[in-house]
Design a binder for these strands. Structure first.
Lengths: 358, 358
DNA sequence: TTGTACGCGTTATCAC
DNA sequence: GTGATAACGCGTACAA
């Protein structure tokens, strides 16, 4: 049997009208429901539709309506990392749910190369979407430039440090980082190392910031290990490197659970036990936290909630109800960017204990 | 500063033409390159474009060209699972790379509810994409129905058992499952349990099939534990349940690495050591395999490669070069579906040893 | 080399 | 209630 997946000639509204013996206008009204159409022609139309196998061409509809009922979910990460960052996954799920109930289609665009950047720009400017949700925007990101230039409705996850007056959804990374650092301090640790990652965006910068603030006089900058990404591998290698340089650290604050999970396995490979020989805390409360052994004490971050709120925010802008929507939320203003901060909380598990007496 | 992200009025080709003092036709030709346009008007056009800030409306262009240069990547999974299945991630990355170099835009559509199913159907039928790549299609999936009905160019990852004559990319799950089962058998195990998952699609069915075939006389169906999904959690709970029922198993074949990773942690929680007290093998060679402790002996599956080949296959159909493309590949025919099987291989790591003498 | 005019498949606004 | 008809923004013969 030969394969013939060439797109078949589609029936148009015209065909339906001809088949039903009435005008296109009536058929169109039939589809858009909100208008008058007699039961007689209604039936004729339904028969005709079934006969010619008509399905509306949404692209054409959008052209005239100037609306696509679609929002882009843009993730600008090495794609490999996208697949192992449960945080992004949670945001995606939350956004998709919210958009779905509001009858918007989410299209996920992943940017993994220069070429992708350019094509996605074209896509965005091409009128395929009514708005966007942008996760993990970096400083000076070209796609965000496109978005701001076109004044397309958009919401950012995390606060892009180089953009002013863009709505964003975030958490208070500084406060949360201080909280979890305090856990270590309160347990009696003073030689605390940090595996810092994501410092090309606000989340990473703020977590590092919170750590240094809370450490106060105990801070030893030599114990800060800088990583490229929020990933297991970087956590693994970073922990190895840090412990080589500073074998006397008794606790580690990892910038994310994935990083922490990598550190956990690295430390175990060194023959140390967790938390007895070394305490480790993470950040995110993602699956990495519960699938690590021991399970991680960490900061819970409502990723699905962030996705949902971001979706609401984008839709509000699209539908022109943003001022009203915003007024019913607690907006903070960072610089002049209107943002919504969601709550985080500490989750105690099994990766922290007091340092052993020497 | 008030937020005003209402979409700005876009400049059209008409505006450019007026500004440049020439006709729309010439401007259009300028953009589509392939035609004659004098340097004089070329310069005028470029000035005009810059001045009015024109960007082509791709949606309108598509309407007339009847091409969108876009292919859908459809993943029909509980979205939460999508984010923890590195296999899907790999396929996505591979597909995105290939599409990108061929100048196609990938849009990822995730189906997570009835509502999503319906909307995605509309999206597909609405003319937004030229073709599709479908991962994890289930038996009798409504979206696949839409695709086959419309004869839209498409490629499936894995062989949808209820569809005939659709191109698919896959691996020989039966042979691979036999291979890894043989590893356990050769190590001397006979009481081997299986954590079977994904039996609503061909991959799960075939892995189970391969296991039972290779076990031969040693097969004890009571040692097969059926799981709902290829997930860590199901692996964790399934292992607990199986070991409760049958404490004498000495080895476990998990249908995926995620399942195996869950099983590993469950088994460890029971106080057993791996592989000394229990051997475990996985399937996929995903990040779960190397981040588990001990690292898993497993079957390597080329997920990126599958994504890339699937993209090629879809593009070939779109561009009408499928027959030629297919003839340069080794096609297998399962029933009457033309498929491409990619190679897998065994990866030895640290999760298998011989059973301990009683 | 350039302009004109028509078509892509819908929706929306009119009169009827 | 219904049927023309003008948009929507662009590509492209065809004529000039």
């Amino acid at each position: 049997m030969p394969l013939d997946n060439q797109p078949r000639k589609r029936a148009t509204i015209h065909d339906v009208a001809r088949e039903a013996g009435i005008s296109r206008g009536t058929v169109s009204r039939y589809f858009n429901g909100d208008a008058y159409v007699s039961t007689a022609s209604r039936e004729a139309i339904e028969r005709a539709i079934a006969k010619v196998g008509y399905v509306p061409n949404t692209a054409a509809r959008n052209l005239v309506r100037q609306r696509t009922q679609t929002v882009a979910f843009i993730v600008h990460e090495p794609a490999a990392l996208f697949t192992e960052d449960p945080n992004i996954g949670g945001i995606l799920v939350g956004a998709n749910n919210e958009l779905s109930t509001r009858d918007y289609q989410l299209v996920c665009l992943v940017i993994d190369s220069e070429r992708d950047t350019h094509r996605v720009e074209q896509y965005l400017k091409g009128g395929f979407v009514d708005g966007a949700i942008v996760v993990s925007a970096r400083h000076g990101d070209p796609v965000t430039q496109v978005i701001t230039d076109s004044t397309m409705p958009a919401t950012y996850i995390g606060h892009p440090t180089d953009l002013k007056n863009v709505p964003f959804i975030g958490i208070d990374n500084i406060a949360a980082a201080r909280t979890i650092t305090r856990v270590l301090l309160d347990a009696g640790h003073t030689h605390i190392g940090m595996l810092a990652a994501g410092t090309d965006r606000d989340s990473g910068v703020d977590r590092l910031h919170g750590f240094t603030q809370e450490m106060g006089d105990h801070l030893n900058r030599a114990l800060i290990q800088h990583l490229d990404t929020y990933s297991y591998n970087d956590g693994y290698n970073g922990a190895l490197e840090l412990l080589r340089r500073a074998p006397d650290v008794t606790a580690l604050f990892a910038a994310s659970d994935a990083v922490a999970a990598g550190a956990v396995n690295a430390v175990k490979r060194l023959g140390l036990r967790i938390p007895d020989d070394l305490s480790i805390v993470g950040f995110d409360d993602s699956v990495w936290a519960t699938r690590s052994d021991p399970q991680l004490t960490t900061i819970h971050q409502p990723s699905r909630g962030m996705g949902a709120v971001a979706a609401q925010c984008t839709i509000a802008q699209i539908e022109g109800t943003y001022p009203h929507w915003a007024s019913s939320h607690h907006l903070v203003t960072d610089g002049d960017a209107p943002g919504i901060m969601l709550d985080t909380h500490l989750v105690h598990r099994d990766s922290v204990t007091s340092p052993r007496p020497h």
